[in-house]
Design a protein around this nucleic acid. Structure first.
Length: 289
DNA sequence: AACCAAGTCAACCGCATTCAG
DNA sequence: CCTGAATGCGGTTGACTTGGT
């Protein structure tokens, strides 16, 4: 026995929406909201549409502040970088681009952006990228695989979704209130790394938090083959330009005082951790929902 | 002008997850 | 806790548009 249909298929209209249907739906939701029940909504308005169809129409076209087409270079970079890190999780990607819908981004990626990037890198790398792309698609890769197998098909562009800190000693959190800095870095600790690489390290971080989040959750992140970058010292001050992530680890085994690291690497690990833990609550704090 | 192929994108479908009773 | 309904999501479809011949 199959699944029960969500509506009476014989009595609902399918296909493109007419201006009259759009007006009815928009007017009703503007005045009354969705009522938390999409299935009942079309009956209330007198629309011969499935509730799911109404929901889709509203979310993708009728709700306020929706943008269509005209993707900027910056948006392209965000989409590419996130796709590299988390794969085809369009709703998460859309959450990072105000006014864009998952459907729009999905269509844009499938019809234009993917080709644009392949063409760009073919030009830069003499065609090798296309073979890699085919290989990748045939392998049905996952986000976590992408994180540990960083074959780059497009420029790796840092995407600061939310400021993050790694801190295994909970130090100086109250000082991290510099609103002008995207990563909100401020502490009296010396954070200049003595080494700029830390291969084959694995670390347990007791804390992973955006600067706006007051709670604490434990994550264990295997760092693997991550190359760390360091903040530069300029005139005796720390210069964090170009630094996307700071690890505040300062003691214990594998002492790594003041290392900073690559945003994309950590982000991938965080996403993977959240996904594997089904951590919907934390995802909210990272702008994933 | 007519035809065809390729490209675009709105909308549908079915599965997974979440929610409410 | 269990179950069924509702919702959310991503893959896919197919109608329509555009460009080439």
């Amino acid at each position: 026995m199959g699944r029960a249909p969500c509506c009476d298929k014989a009595n609902v209209k399918k296909g493109p929406w007419s201006p009259e249907e759009d007006a009815k739906l928009k007017s009703y939701i503007d005045h009354h909201g969705t009522g938390g029940n999409w299935i009942a909504l079309p009956h209330k308005i007198g629309l011969k549409r499935c509730g799911k169809s109404c929901r889709l129409r509203w979310l993708n076209y009728l709700r306020p502040n929706i943008k269509h087409g005209g993707f900027s270079e910056e948006e392209d970079n965000v989409i590419c970088s996130l796709f590299l890190n988390i794969g085809s999780r369009w709703s998460i990607i859309a959450a990072q681009l105000p006014g864009r819908t998952d459907n729009d981004i999905k269509n844009y990626w499938n019809t234009k952006l993917k080709k644009k990037l392949i063409a760009k890198q073919q030009k830069e790398q003499g065609g090798s990228v296309f073979k890699q792309e085919m290989k990748r698609e045939s392998e049905n890769f996952t986000a976590s695989e992408a994180a540990v197998n960083p074959i780059l098909y497009w420029p790796e562009v840092p995407v600061p979704i939310a400021p993050l800190f790694l801190d295994d000693h909970q130090q100086a959190k109250t000082n991290r209130t510099n609103p002008g800095h995207p990563f909100d870095i401020s502490t009296t600790q010396n954070r200049f790394a003595t080494s700029n690489s830390m291969n084959s390290a694995s670390g347990t971080y007791s804390e992973l938090l955006p600067n706006t989040f007051d709670g604490f959750k434990n994550y264990t992140i295997e760092l693997g083959e991550i190359v760390y970058n360091t903040p530069r010292e300029v005139d005796g001050l720390e210069d964090f330009s170009g630094v996307e992530m700071v690890n505040y680890g300062s003691s214990g085994s594998g002492t790594r005082s003041g290392e900073s690291t690559n945003w994309g690497d950590i982000k991938s690990l965080v996403y993977s951790s959240m996904v594997s833990n089904n951590d919907a609550e934390d995802s909210k704090y990272f702008g994933l929902q």
